[in-house]
């Protein structure tokens, strides 16, 4: 993380970075000599790196849980429609510029509302007679996603070119706008839901055995699914709201960890969070360097970097035959 903070449009020596971060966190050491450097390190880079870590962890954990909840290896926040809900919310605010209905709602708030609304819809439509069958859930998610996507496309047609550019950047995701004051809320949600979901680890394992077996093992399958769906919608909504809809992390990181250490959620979830965090910090770092001084949106790099490695791992793994 320290390395990630030091590199950017302006490179800051590692030692300086340490000094500045240490000074702000503990109050120890001398105050930074150069106020501009201090500004860059503490007010721009540090919150950005912290946010990237939180977003990466949140997306990855959410993907891991959703894959188990709907019993489908392709599941992630995008497939279940959460991301498209968030996109519609964000695009509405960007293009209507906070029109009458949405006055007072920022892009982030609208995206959060969109994601959670999509989650609620999937939840409601995926239920039948109190039972949440995995296939119905995933198909409901896909359908809800398409509806939100159509609505988003329609709104985009009404947008000006400048607005479209903003929309596109939002959709590809970025943590460039990170600020200290948004971090407490985001980190609280990410840490709380990730911890809670990790506590559900054993039950998630039981869910892998299939619904009938899980019932015979004393799990109320429908209640568990409902709780997990709510938690992951909250988690996804929060991180997408601040960073945009970043693809691939939620799908790939959980599989990467599974292929390496197995599917026991009590190990899987914490490690998925960790790897998701590290991965997005790295991707964000690259997005700042490859095209200096311009930045690339995260969504482009997450897949571009991750896919080849993922495919390599996929071909090497014998367990999938």
């Amino acid at each position: 993380m320290i390395v990630a903070i030091s590199i950017g449009a302006v490179n800051v020596p590692l030692g300086e970075v340490w000094g500045i971060v240490l000074h702000h966190v503990t109050g120890a050491g001398a105050a930074p000599s150069d106020p501009a450097l201090d500004q860059i390190v503490w007010n721009f880079r540090t919150p950005r790196v912290v946010l990237a870590a939180l977003v990466g962890a949140g997306l990855a954990v959410s993907g891991a849980v959703l894959q188990t909840v709907v019993s489908n290896p392709l599941a992630d926040p995008i497939v279940l429609g959460f991301s498209y809900g968030a996109t519609l919310g964000a695009v509405l605010v960007i293009t209507l510029g906070g029109g009458v209905a949405l006055a007072g709602l920022g892009v982030s708030a609208a995206a959060f509302v969109g994601a959670v609304a999509a989650g609620a819809l999937v939840f409601a439509l995926g239920r039948r007679r109190g039972r949440m069958a995995p296939t119905r859930l995933v198909l409901a998610g896909v359908a809800v996603g398409y509806v939100f996507l159509s609505a988003t496309s329609f709104v985009q047609l009404q947008a000006t070119p400048t607005e479209l550019r903003t929309v596109m950047f939002w959709m590809l995701g970025s943590v460039a706008g990170a600020q200290w004051d948004q971090l407490p809320a985001v980190s609280a949600v990410v840490l709380a839901t990730t911890t809670l979901l990790s506590l559900f680890g054993r039950r998630l394992n039981v869910l892998l055995a299939g619904d009938e077996s899980a019932t015979a093992l004393g799990i109320d399958v429908n209640r568990l699914r409902a709780a997990l769906l709510v938690l992951s919608a909250l988690l996804t909504g929060t991180v997408i709201a601040v960073a945009g809809s970043i693809g691939f992390v939620g799908l790939m990181i959980p599989h990467l960890v599974r292929l390496t250490i197995g599917a026991d959620h009590r190990r899987l979830l914490p490690l998925t969070a960790l790897l998701g965090a590290v991965y997005l910090v790295l991707v964000d770092l690259l997005s700042r360097v490859v095209n200096r001084p311009n930045e690339l949106p995260l969504g482009i790099l997450t897949a571009l970097l991750g896919a080849p490695f993922f495919l390599w791992l996929l071909r090497r793994n014998k367990g999938l035959d």
Partner: peptide
């Protein structure tokens, strides 16, 4: 209960 093996997705356990 020991049920017929068809269901579940236990890859990785």
């Amino acid at each position: 209960a020991v049920l017929q093996d068809a269901e579940g997705n236990t890859t990785g356990l």
